[in-house]
């Protein structure tokens, strides 16, 4: 049973402006702008774009407690065909090596497989950010075979190797379905040494605390998933929960918001700034608008005014060395070992 989305429950935090106002009202020891400047990034700018991240919509078969997208079964936003085409034309005309497809559950997009085929035909590496349980739905049961055939990298969410913590974050029964899905991926060669089929896992803390050491946790996870379920995988990525959308609601409801933000600010790591994903990622929203990252997308902080605002007007040249739009939530990506869609950044 999926949890209700903020939108469905008419929460005030369903709106991006309310989320930004909530974060802006907090007394913090320093601004992200000053922290980045002290680390030598004044202003914080991009390098060249090496990942095009398409958020193809907010529909999802799950509704996780920490979801920064407020995705769920009741969301209707789906990237229309002209935006899909513009993204792929932009990709094909560029030398951007990687297409990262996310959502919601990106596989629910009616053109998901066409997007993958076209990007692969253009010789690009493709990442599918998969929630695992989608492959247990009858209409999507052949999805792992399709992904294997197209040699798509799978980055799958699994917060814990125990059922209680996984289900607490992602919903009742998600752990068992996720384990079954991972076992299926393994039978196809995913996560098996030498197969070339990459199966990477993502863990977000199940609560208001920072993730642990990625290398140390990866060793624990490999041992425990193998021992308990016979599962193998390639890499474990630790990702800090962002204080936006449903996780922001959780922080507010649980009385942890100020302490969590103070923790993120206190844990600012200057060495994590260089590898921030916003410095090399271009994020496209379901409606074609451009953002520096998927988190900015969800609180409606678009690319800087002097940069292109939609994929229809974008060129790789016009997006290089652009100023990055920042806010208090950015401390989430610089805390401790750093955090990105590819895990720790230091």
């Amino acid at each position: 049973m999926a949890l209700p989305t903020l939108l469905n429950t008419r929460s005030p935090l369903a709106g991006a402006a309310a989320q930004r106002a909530t974060l802006a009202s907090l007394p913090l020891a320093r601004t992200f702008e000053s922290a980045a400047a002290a680390a030598g990034y004044d202003p914080l700018t991009t390098t060249s774009v090496s990942i095009l991240q398409m958020n193809v919509g907010k529909r999802c078969n799950q509704a996780c407690h920490h979801c920064h997208v407020d995705a769920g079964p009741d969301r209707t936003e789906v990237m229309p065909a002209d935006v899909v085409d513009a993204c792929l034309r932009f990709l094909e005309a560029s030398d951007i090596p990687t297409l990262d497809i996310t959502g919601g559950a990106p596989e629910l997009h009616p053109s998901f497989r066409d997007i993958v085929r076209r990007a692969r035909a253009a010789g690009r590496h493709v990442i599918d950010r998969c929630n695992l349980t989608i492959t247990r739905l009858p209409a999507y049961s052949d999805l792992p075979e399709f992904l294997a055939e197209q040699e798509v990298e799978v980055i799958a969410s699994l917060p814990s190797f125990t059922s209680r913590q996984t289900d607490a974050q992602r919903g009742e029964g998600v752990f068992d379905d996720s384990i079954a899905a991972l076992q299926h991926f393994n039978t196809l060669g995913y996560g098996v040494e030498g197969s070339g089929l990459l199966l990477n896992l993502v863990t977000n803390p199940v609560g208001a605390f920072l993730p642990g050491s990625q290398a140390s946790l990866e060793a624990d996870w490999k041992r425990e998933l193998k021992r308990r379920h016979g599962i193998t995988f390639n890499r474990l990525y630790t990702i800090t929960n962002m204080p936006i959308s449903r996780f922001l609601q959780f922080l507010l409801d649980s009385g942890n918001l100020q302490a969590y933000m103070d923790r993120l600010v206190a844990a600012f790591n200057p060495a994590a700034v260089e590898g921030l994903m916003c410095r090399y990622t271009l994020s496209v929203g379901w409606d074609g608008r451009l953002y520096d990252c998927d988190f900015n997308q969800m609180i409606d902080l678009g690319t800087a005014a002097e940069a292109p605002q939609t994929i229809f007007e974008a060129t790789p040249e016009s997006l290089a060395a652009r100023r990055i739009t920042i806010g208090p939530h950015c401390f989430g990506c610089t805390a401790g070992a750093g955090s990105s869609c590819g895990g720790a950044t230091t």
């Binding site: 814990s160 125990t162 209680r164 913590q165 803390p205 609560g207 605390f209 920072l210 993730p211 642990g212 050491s213 140390s216 946790l217 624990d220």
Partner: peptide, 12 residues
């Protein structure tokens, strides 16, 4: 308690 969670220990 916080440190244990941040280092990846489970409540169990």
């Amino acid at each position: 308690s916080t440190a244990c969670l941040e280092k990846g220990s489970t409540p169990e």
